[in-house]
Design a protein around this nucleic acid. Structure first.
Length: 665
DNA sequence: GTTTCGGTTCTTTTT
DNA sequence: GAACCGAAAC
């Protein structure tokens, strides 16, 4: 699908030079639906883009269109949910238009807020060098609040639960009570204690000048709401606001968008209510449903022509989603030639499923597909454990979009904690983490040391470092002194993150890792990568905030690798959103697994969301789709649990799929 | 009183 | 794998 002007954008245009695009360029590159959307006049626009209908393409051409009309890049804001989506969009737009990077404002909601808050933090009473807490940091902090209030009996909810309650309340701007009621119903919980702990959490974040992911959004909106002059500034700046995956916005994000676009009202939102799969983190697809009411003059364009999948796959997708209530009606219209029907394979158990997948992958390869054309998708990471072992045994190369993100791994966080301490004296979480690396220091001792240091630790202050050394036991103090020397040199090296981490690893962490982890080699390899990565940043502070927000970085890096190295791709359905493969295999299409029984028990609306998730999974496939249904689950204790076919399969009309029963003898 | 170690259990989805 | 728990070790 190379277009003439994309090549022109790459080769003919010098830096910053604009490529003039004419109406015929757009007509040639877009179908009539896409054309109508991309060249829509000013004002609010809602694009309902069903799966595989060229949504990104349309947005990219919208940006090109604006540019060709002389809109300066600095006046365009492009919001997406993932870093990957942002990169893809900006890259494609750049290659089309020929403008060099750095023009448009583009990125995730969290990035956008961070960028704005760094500039205006003072208005909200934060210093501009606030730290960002990732999920693990937040958990640690909540756990510490619980411990402090001596609530550690079994009845009290775990930190994760407390956080998700808090987040649910914050993201949908509701009272904690409502969130509690949703979660626990009439189960007896101590509301007061929960409230107190969460208040402690809030005040400790403030004291440490830290924001968690939710704070970035909440404070971003608060800044605009409470400071008219700041809101004015950005409303003027962003003459055009484009939002991708609008169906996944939560109320805070929707407010942010409304405010930013409030002046010029050139707001284009793109989404597909069928693909709304993030309600558990506050996303509300009613945002997209009610867009035409909130913007009565909105132009609505539907993209329904599907370029991705063969008709047989689209029939299954259309049938699967038809039963969901309250959605915009859209039907995927195929453009591709007819192919064979999707396959439903019944096998005895998980082991047979793993075998079957390997076999199927080999067959597909012998039919001419490359390994990188194939993906295995599943509802939850643990569904793929057995398959991972089988792939390793059979030497099939695969990359996994893992559940544990690169920057959340213990060893990476350990090394980064040194930088965090150096950059912000009030970062208690990082200081505690650093202390606990030393022998004989656990939670209690670390807390005591921090108290003695006055709740702060200025790593650039030799006296403060000396004090900590004296509070450690002898063997730990020896090691501390070496680290102390490295901290002392930090300023002199020009605050060089890479070399500081390098020294830290050499003087201390390498030994520590070997003694702590059985796979120290691999972890140290990660750290070397981290050190190399750090060199790309102009300052340590930039590195740290990027790291907190780019938890997905490895997935992106791996994405490139997988394509280059030709490996099979394993991924959750959530992480596969926005991607496509020639062949898709979906695991564990059984009741309890997909739909997940856990999520069904959470809320009434869960079944509809699981069905949308299944829809997302199916619509990733271009030509081949295979659904696996193991008949039993073997439990750890040796027990056997019979599995029923997923309701998403049994409710399909007759005749849409082929069936097969491999592995039965 | 704390830390550390070994064994056991259970895995949703993410910025 | 990692989080949790109980018991041994410091």
């Amino acid at each position: 699908m190379t277009t003439p002007f994309r090549r022109r954008g790459r080769s003919d245009s010098a830096e910053g030079e604009k490529v003039v695009m004419q109406d015929s360029d757009f007509r040639d590159a877009l179908n009539s639906e896409q054309y109508e959307a991309a060249l829509a006049p000013d004002g609010p626009v809602l694009i309902l883009a069903a799966a595989g209908t060229g949504k990104t393409r349309t947005l990219v051409y919208r940006v090109a269109y604006l540019t060709s009309r002389g809109v300066s890049p600095g006046h365009v804001l492009l919001l997406t949910f993932t870093n990957r989506a942002a990169h893809e969009m900006l890259e494609r737009a750049e290659s089309l238009v020929g403008t060099r990077a750095g023009g448009w404002w583009g990125g995730t909601f969290h990035h956008m807020c961070n960028r704005v808050l760094r500039r205006h933090a003072a208005s909200l009473g934060y210093p501009s060098d606030y730290t960002i807490l990732d999920r693990d940091d937040s958990r640690t902090l909540v756990a510490s609040c619980v411990r402090e209030r001596k609530l550690r009996n079994k009845e009290f909810p775990k930190p994760e639960v407390l956080l998700s309650l808090h987040s649910a309340a914050v993201n949908s701007s509701r009272a904690l009570d409502d969130a509690l009621k949703d979660r626990f119903g009439d189960v007896d919980v101590d509301v007061e204690d929960i409230r107190k702990v969460l208040q402690d959490y809030e005040s400790r974040k403030r004291k440490q000048n830290a924001m968690d992911f939710d704070d970035l959004l909440v404070n971003g909106v608060r800044l605009l709401r409470e400071h008219g002059e700041v809101q004015d500034q950005y409303q003027h700046q962003f003459r055009y606001v484009l939002v991708d995956e609008y169906q996944d916005t939560n109320p805070i994000q929707a407010e942010l968008v409304d405010r930013l676009a409030g002046r010029h009202r050139n707001l284009m939102v793109v989404g597909d209510d069928f693909q709304s799969i993030y309600s558990w983190r506050g996303a509300d697809f009613r945002n997209i449903m009610s867009f035409p009411e909130r913007y009565p003059d909105a132009k609505v364009v539907k993209l329904e022509t599907n370029y991705r999948s063969v008709p047989e796959i689209l029939s299954v997708a259309n049938a699967c989603i038809a039963g969901n209530p309250q959605q915009f009606q859209k039907t995927l219209r195929p453009t591709r030639e007819s192919h064979h029907k999707p396959l439903v394979a019944y096998m005895p158990d998980g082991a047979a499923q793993a075998h079957f997948v390997v076999e199927t992958v080999r067959e597909l390869c012998s039919e001419g597909y490359d390994l990188s054309d194939i993906a295995v998708l599943y509802r939850a990471h643990y569904h793929a454990m057995e398959l991972q072992m089988e792939l390793t045994r059979q030497r099939v190369a695969y990359t996994i979009m893992s559940g544990l993100r690169f920057f959340e791994q213990a060893h990476v966080k350990d090394v980064l904690s040194l930088l965090r301490v150096l950059e912000s004296p009030s970062d208690q979480i990082a200081f505690m983490r650093l202390l606990m690396l030393f022998p004989g220091v656990g939670e209690r001792t670390a807390e005591k040391i921090m108290e003695r240091a006055g709740g702060k630790f200025d790593a650039l202050d030799a006296a403060a470092r000396g004090l900590v050394g004296r509070l450690l036991r002898a063997d730990a103090a020896l090691e501390w002194n070496e680290i102390s020397a490295i901290m002392g040199r930090y300023e002199a090296t020009g605050r060089n993150a890479g070399s500081t981490m390098e020294q830290f690893v050499e003087a201390f962490y390498e030994r520590h890792a070997v003694n702590t982890f059985d796979n120290a080699d691999r972890r140290l390899e990660d750290i070397r990568e981290l050190i190399a990565y750090a060199d790309k940043f102009e300052s340590t502070e930039r590195l740290l905030s990027e790291v907190a927000l780019m938890t997905n970085l490895d997935a992106e890096a791996e994405d490139v690798n997988a394509r280059a190295l030709s490996t099979l791709r394993l991924s959750t359905v959530h992480q596969a959103k926005g991607l496509e493969w020639q062949a898709v295999i979906i695991l564990w299409m059984t009741e309890g697994m997909f739909p997940s029984s856990r999520s069904l028990s959470e809320s009434e609306a869960a079944e509809a969301e699981e069905r949308r998730l299944f829809y997302v999974a199916i619509t990733r496939a271009k030509s081949e789709l295979c659904l696996c249904v193991p008949q039993v689950r073997r439990m750890r204790d040796g027990g056997v649990m019979p599995c029923q076919s997923s309701r998403f399969l049994t409710e399909l009309p007759q005749g849409l799929v082929r069936t097969k029963r491999p592995g039965f003898y």
